[in-house]
């Protein structure tokens, strides 16, 4: 067993999420009293910066795609909680709009980043809702996985 090494300022680590390939670990750390997501390289322990998520703490419920390109989590915007997905490749931040005043509680991103599951509160009850992200995010697939290119037709 290994222990995820804490940063110098981290006093606690919660809500762990591994990337599909097992190379990245996201945790929520208490940094100067603010619940902040940290992304660690599991192999060498280095911490990756997530500039697009610097504001809007507290963070909770991180979830990573296969190669850790995308990180989904719950943030705070003013008085409202909001689910967002950060793209580490191009720095974009995708907010997930929830109609009807429902609050997001927990999030899970499929490894290929094409589907999102959200736990929300709806009239005092917990629900899980599924969203299709195929119009929003590129696929984050395992390295070396074959693309769905049509097979070459043999020459006559």
């Amino acid at each position: 067993m290994e222990r995820a090494s804490g940063g110098l300022l981290a006093t606690s680590q919660q809500d762990p999420a591994l990337s599909g390939n097992g190379k990245w670990l996201a945790v929520i750390s208490d940094l100067r009293g603010r619940q902040t997501v940290q992304l660690r390289n599991v192999i060498n322990g280095s911490i990756q910066a997530l500039p697009q998520l610097k504001r809007h703490q507290p963070h909770s419920s991180p979830s990573l795609s296969w190669n850790g390109r995308y990180i989904a989590l719950i943030t705070q915007h003013g008085r409202r909680r909001m689910a967002v997905i950060a793209d580490r490749l191009n720095g974009r931040l995708h907010p997930i709009q929830l109609p009807g005043g429902r609050d997001p509680i927990q999030v899970s991103l499929a490894p290929d980043a094409q589907t999102l599951a959200l736990q929300v509160t709806d009239q005092g009850l917990w629900r899980v809702e599924i969203f299709d992200l195929s119009d929003v995010l590129e696929i984050d697939r395992p390295a070396g996985q074959a693309l769905s290119t049509p097979p070459l037709t043999p020459a006559p």
């Binding site: 899970s108 991103l109 290929d112 999102l116 736990q119 629900r127 899980v128």
Partner: peptide
């Protein structure tokens, strides 16, 4: 997902 349960939580998605 709403059918037959009074509440649902803690989703975990795989492929």
């Amino acid at each position: 997902l709403r059918q037959s349960v009074s509440s649902r939580r803690d989703p975990s998605l795989a492929q």
